[in-house]
């Protein structure tokens, strides 16, 4: 009889401890919040022009390869307004990350680098401190050509003036094929 008592006490204690543990983590931060940029949208508007091009990888790294649109532009055109949008389409509803980036424009810098294609890109906005931001840009196309456009988003850059190496870390780094015709 005495032996039984000795047995029960620690077991009961262990169960109590166990239930406390479970309780403790239930209302704790059990959910995680992970931002996955799945989609970068290049929205081009201009005289008689309203086109959207997408870089999309809905299932994240690995698995199905990303689907990338080719950006086609008319030659010898100026004042093409480019507005970038960033989404997480793995969430329902789709998480529009553009709004967060805009709200924290001081901590972000877009860098657009064309290669091969005859297009020049000029800044059309600044952040709250008057430094480059590049969410909106103005494009001018030249003669017919093909090439690529690389778009990077830098988070917490240390030197916004140095677009070649602004510091911070890269939030996305995507490359579109470009055709000017």
């Amino acid at each position: 009889m005495i032996r039984t008592t000795f047995f029960i006490r620690p077991v009961a204690l262990a169960m109590l401890f166990t239930s406390l543990t479970f309780q403790a983590c239930k209302d704790d931060d059990t959910t995680t919040e992970q931002e996955n940029i799945t989609t970068v949208e290049v929205h081009l508007t201009g005289p008689g022009m309203d086109m959207k091009f997408y870089w999309r990888d809905l299932d994240g790294p690995g698995g199905t390869a990303p689907v990338i649109d080719e950006i086609t532009l008319p030659a010898m055109t100026d004042n093409i307004m480019c507005h970038l949008h960033v989404y997480d389409e793995s969430k329902t509803p789709t998480d529009n990350i553009t709004e967060e980036i805009e709200a924290e424009n001081v901590d972000h810098l877009f860098v657009l680098t064309p290669t091969g294609a005859d297009v020049s890109i000029a800044s059309d906005d600044t952040d709250d401190n008057g430094a480059p931001f590049n969410l909106e840009t103005l494009w001018t196309t030249g003669s017919a050509s093909t090439g690529t456009l690389n778009i990077k988003l830098h988070h917490e850059p240390t030197d916004k003036a140095n677009t070649a190496s602004p510091g911070g870390e890269t939030d996305f780094d995507v490359t579109f094929p470009v055709k000017i015709q």
Partner: peptide, 24 residues
């Protein structure tokens, strides 16, 4: 034994991610 590991990544501070771990 109960093991609880939470990893907090650098995130954009606005939005819901502010006080939550990115991995748990």
């Amino acid at each position: 034994q109960f093991n609880h590991r939470r990893e907090y990544d650098v995130v954009r501070s606005s939005g819901t991610a502010a006080d939550k771990p990115q991995l748990s």
